[in-house]
Design a protein around this nucleic acid. Sequence first.
DNA 1: GATGAATGAGGCTTCATTCAT
DNA 2: AATGAATGAAGCCTCATTCAT
Lengths: 207, 207, 207, 207
Amino acid sequence: MAPETKKRHRRKAERPAEILDAAFEEFVQHGYSATRLEDVAARAGVTKGTVYFYFDAKERVFEEMVRHKSQTFLPDLTNHVSTLRGPYTERLRSLMAFTYAHIAANRDSREVLRFLISEGGRFPELVERHYDEFVLPIMEQFKTVIDGGVAAGEFRESVSSTYTEIVMSPALLLSLWSMLFGSRKTLGIESFTEASVDLLLHGMLRR
Amino acid sequence: MAPETKKRHRRKAERPAEILDAAFEEFVQHGYSATRLEDVAARAGVTKGTVYFYFDAKERVFEEMVRHKSQTFLPDLTNHVSTLRGPYTERLRSLMAFTYAHIAANRDSREVLRFLISEGGRFPELVERHYDEFVLPIMEQFKTVIDGGVAAGEFRESVSSTYTEIVMSPALLLSLWSMLFGSRKTLGIESFTEASVDLLLHGMLRR
Amino acid sequence: MAPETKKRHRRKAERPAEILDAAFEEFVQHGYSATRLEDVAARAGVTKGTVYFYFDAKERVFEEMVRHKSQTFLPDLTNHVSTLRGPYTERLRSLMAFTYAHIAANRDSREVLRFLISEGGRFPELVERHYDEFVLPIMEQFKTVIDGGVAAGEFRESVSSTYTEIVMSPALLLSLWSMLFGSRKTLGIESFTEASVDLLLHGMLRR
Amino acid sequence: MAPETKKRHRRKAERPAEILDAAFEEFVQHGYSATRLEDVAARAGVTKGTVYFYFDAKERVFEEMVRHKSQTFLPDLTNHVSTLRGPYTERLRSLMAFTYAHIAANRDSREVLRFLISEGGRFPELVERHYDEFVLPIMEQFKTVIDGGVAAGEFRESVSSTYTEIVMSPALLLSLWSMLFGSRKTLGIESFTEASVDLLLHGMLRR
DNA sequence: GATGAATGAGGCTTCATTCAT
DNA sequence: AATGAATGAAGCCTCATTCAT
């Protein structure tokens, strides 16, 4: 096969992803409505028509872009959980650090969250999907560890599974904080994570 | 003065607020870009021209609307804090319950948050303002109580002032959760607040 | 009332008709799809936006334009029929001359027919309407006269009411001929009408 | 030569006609402007590029398609005329029946007429060609028979050659009627033809 | 010969904004 | 103060056409 043919085919295979990456940047900067598909095309190095060759409409570009940018965490999380050993306190600490880092430090993840908040009303399927394929699985992993810790006698007996959302909440704050107030006051991911772990594990009360 | 005149005058004085209330509803439903000023006007019972009589441009309507919907919490908070008495554990518990209720239960507050996340890039002054007049003051109130608790020997000595953001984070999660996944799984404000208070105060570890 | 106000109001009242008249000319020249609404607007002395202030969409402009240009014949026909007196032969001759003149000589009528033929598939309601409000009434008038002629013993007994379409057909040919082949061979309306009347009447008369 | 090669060659030779047949269906359904060459290609079982291999441009596809669908009547008509014998009354009756059937019953013929009416302005050569190669020859055949009938003393002396268009007009009405109002009121081709022949012949016969 | 990815001009439609009344 | 007719810039989307493979 001639190298040109190869290049052509590879090109064709890569185009959609290139367009979606460009779309991500434009949507991040301007939001859904204020983003012009022509700018997306230009950023991807193609013209308007090409975008429409691969995607039906602007809505579709947005949806596919969110899907495209949501695809990485789950396998990593599962893999990480399977490596956890030792006391549940350490397992939870490790899991929190791992998850916080992904949610708060990962730009894609942060912006996907922003898209869901901003455009969730217009794209309810996206929210549904995110809940099923991202939120629920994470919650389950946490629940498993928390329940394990209770069973092992490490965690207080009153610690219920409804605590999973609470355990996640500092990561959420971290993520939104960097979106909104990052320029005013930086919350260091590591120190904030450490403080969260400490507080959630030990509580505030003097023993 | 005839009653009609009176009513008219009152109406006139109320017009801007009526327009901003209408704008709030439209912006909530469609977002900034997709909201049509004509729909705002219609909802307010006036015509487009009237909106432009009171506001320079669409951006101004949005900004004023956010201001309009952000104005209520601070005095209440200050007032509430001034009534706190007794052990710091109870003061913090009371402050958390009060703040969580406002942030998560109040629709205006929730939607303002959404506006900041969605349109913060386009309206940075709004974010600045929200930080200065809403976030910072709340943080200060919490810091005062937390520091008081540490000084009084109720809270652990290692409990630092960076914990204020952590203490707020469940409220944020509660707020966003109801925006995004409220239809899938409801988090009861009271029970969630109670669990948060319990967890943050006591931690997860068995004593 | 100031004359300006009057002018404004009159203007507003006339705008839709002005736009439809302009649309007629553009649609006649280029057909439905190839007509640009911007050209319609320019011809009417307004801008694109104004067209959309009065009409929802291009399809609506077309529909309303056809309605606008179809509104004149019926009252005249009814009126003309009511004046017919004397032998049915003369009545029919007069009715044919009157109808042929309208259908074939009237430009609006001719072009409306062309629109129905060209765009009938896209605008079936227009065809329905034309049939109900134009074709059927004309047929009925003819039928009345023809039946009267038979009853009076002037026309052959075998002359049935299905002849009405036949009696109309030369008018249709005249109309289409002038659209298509007018530049090659002109069919004079009067002489053609006269010949048609002669031929058809001789065909109908009792020997 | 392998059978596949054979088949392929045959396909190649037939490609243009297949494309034109597909084009006919699409143009019939959507009209000239609203027909997409891609749909034509798909219907013909090829891709856009192939259409452009055989035809310069969309206009050319349309023109060739009209030519393609106009090619069948003339030889048949000539042939039919050459078989006419006996009294001119019968000859005319036979000629009318034969011509009416072709014009009104034949779908291709009907739709070509519609194309000429709709797009005649854009394709004047097509109209010219149709006049020269279809209308004029038919007229001449009719004129020959009519003149023969007058010379033979069967038809009235005043029956002039301008009657040829009139004699054709019911066929035209029949054709357009089925396009426009076929779904509302069906005109049976045979009975309508019979009625027309009856009416017109009675009109032409010497008493 | 045939394909189909890519182009880009062009048209429909929306809507923030203006301004005469 | 308020109206609403009018503007025109701007964006979505279509599709005839091209051309490298």
